[in-house]
Nucleic acid binder design. Structure first.
Length: 491
RNA sequence: CGGGGUGUAGCACAGUCCGGUUAGUGUACCUGGUUUGGGACCAGGGGGCCGCAGGUUCGAAUCCUGCCACCCCGACCA
């Protein structure tokens, strides 16, 4: 099968779509807007999950599970929340089918109408806070630090594999605290966890910041986020962490008794990342030959391809290959020895490049003679011969080097495509000609933000956390501004 | 939901304008043989509700109507 994918320069969107499908990550399903995550794609997601789950547990969180269905009435308890999600909810109205006498097949049984409709969760704040009401009585019950791995449904108009699907997988953390300060600290802590994960594991550099009022989570007082840059210069929101204040505590009447015996509302946070991270991972590093995976998240880190003519040769090569396989595995490196005789070496090379396997070892008759192996790295496509007794150490080091290199490449790209604009003309010119991230002054009003969005399609991705205070004037309104914010076109 | 485009073998496409033998090509698949350091070659073979449903016609992949799905551009989107 010809697996060539379109080039990025030709058509970036098409390149992404084809890559996702050809690399065996995911495909569209029979259900509109919902994808099938295929084994290789799911293996990458599982690695992300395992890593994140460990990070959550190390920071004191526990996993739990709450229902998929949420009673409709729960949504209306928090006004901003319902407004934010109402437009994209899937609703369950009946609980039974029956045979269709007229048209054949089955039809919804009108006698099986639910008293109260159920909403398929688009996020779980409401159902979780309803439980928290019963779980929290006293300051001794706090903080409550819960995470849930789940699927959620948001009825999106236009979907794209991983980046925006009607149903997606994610984790959502929901915590309750005695004080505002504690909840704020939690919100920021989880933002740091996300940023660490993105940079150290996904090798994707991110900008940390706070969302403007327009972009804030429905029901939150403050939304923190990490924003990544894709290879086409567009921004991708990779994770969010929300400070909910006492909004949900008040909506669901979650109070605790203080040491002094007074009743107080608890303070909440919620935070999440989704299978959208897969999109970020793919778009940040991959090239026209296929995926480029960071070693820390690659399901297969090293693949060994034998090159042989006769069965005796394969036998000898297998001995060497299996020795490397077990030695590498002993060091915690995942290895696949592809000794299938149904595909030729060249075919396998192309296949594992498409799948983004970081390191490839080829062993052939020449290597047996010389006591070497050929080692190829996916990120730079460099190949070299390495002596067999140095191979294991070499690879261990090489995996670290690849992890670092692809991070650096992405970080350099992000820096090269981050610019400042001091006038609206310059802003529009930069956005049009170069894209990328643009730091510019903004007067702090939603009105200005929306006008800029309408005229240029760029939005304020965030107000960066590390930005220096700098007096200036808004590029749009000319009004005073205390610092630059990050603008970009976004996914 | 609005504008545009596309649905033909697992995948990529031709054929559709102008209806007419048995619907083709590449690739993938199966069999046999030769091969194997970058997607092998030769020979033979199998695979099609032509997106779905209706209609026009002696006859529909082709014409008409409706629907569905996907892609692009908008709108929408934490």
């Amino acid at each position: 099968m010809s697996k060539a994918i379109p080039s990025r320069s030709e058509d970036y969107s098409l390149w992404y779509n084809e890559l996702v499908k050809k690399a065996g990550l995911a495909e569209n399903s029979a259900v509109r807007g919902s994808m099938v995550i295929k084994p290789y794609g799911f293996a990458i997601w599982e690695k992300m999950q395992q890593t994140l789950d460990k990070m959550f547990k190390e920071s004191g969180h526990e996993n739990a599970y709450f229902p998929l269905f949420i009673p409709k009435s729960f949504f209306s308890k928090e006004a901003d929340h319902v407004e934010g999600f109402a437009k994209e909810c899937a609703v369950v109205t009946h609980y039974r089918l029956k045979n269709d006498e007229e048209k054949g097949g089955v039809t919804v049984d009108p006698d099986a109408k639910l008293e109260e409709e159920l909403i398929v969760r688009p996020t779980s704040e409401t159902v979780i806070w309803d439980s928290y009401k019963n779980w929290i009585q006293s300051y001794r019950d706090l903080p409550l630090l819960i995470n849930q791995w789940a699927n959620v449904v948001r009825w999106e108009m236009r979907t794209r594999l991983f980046l925006r699907t009607a149903e997606f997988l994610w984790q959502e953390g929901h915590t309750a605290h005695a004080t505002k300060e504690e909840a704020e600290a939690e919100t920021k802590q989880m933002l740091e966890v996300y940023a660490d994960f993105a940079e150290k594991f996904m090798a994707v550099p991110v900008t940390k910041g706070v969302k403007t009022e327009n972009e804030r989570f429905a029901g939150a007082l403050e939304t923190y986020c990490i924003e990544a840059m894709m290879q086409d210069g567009k921004a991708l929101q990779a994770g969010t962490s929300h400070f909910l204040g006492q909004n949900f505590a008040k909506a669901f009447d979650v109070k605790y008794a203080t040491k002094e015996g007074k009743d107080e509302y608890v303070w909440g946070t919620s935070w999440g990342v989704s299978t959208r991270l897969m999109g970020a991972l793919i778009m940040a590093h991959s090239d026209d030959d296929g995926l480029v995976l960071p070693p820390k998240l690659a399901p297969i880190q090293v693949v060994i391809v034998p090159i042989y003519r006769k069965d005796e040769e394969l036998e000898k090569i297998s001995e060497v290959a299996n020795k490397f396989k077990s030695e590498l595995q002993a060091k915690g490196i995942s290895v696949k020895f592809d000794d299938r005789d149904t595909q030729k070496p060249g075919w396998k090379f192309a296949e594992y490049e498409l799948k983004g396997v970081p390191v490839r070892i080829a062993i052939g008759p020449k290597d047996l003679e010389k006591g070497t192996v050929e080692i190829a790295r996916r990120d730079t496509k460099e190949k070299q011969f390495v002596e067999q007794d140095k191979t294991v150490d070499f690879i261990e080091q090489l995996l670290d080097e690849i992890q670092e290199n692809i991070y650096k490449k992405a970080a350099d790209f992000k820096e090269e495509n981050t610019r400042t604009a001091d006038s609206y003309e310059e802003f529009k010119e930069l956005l049009e000609s170069k894209g990328g991230f643009i730091y510019a002054h903004w007067d702090g009003t939603s009105e200005t933000e929306e006008k800029i969005k309408a005229e240029t399609k760029a939005t304020i991705r965030c107000i960066p956390l590390n930005s220096n205070e700098e007096e200036g004037t808004c590029i749009y309104s000319g009004k005073p501004s205390k610092g630059r914010v990050l603008f970009a076109k976004a996914y």
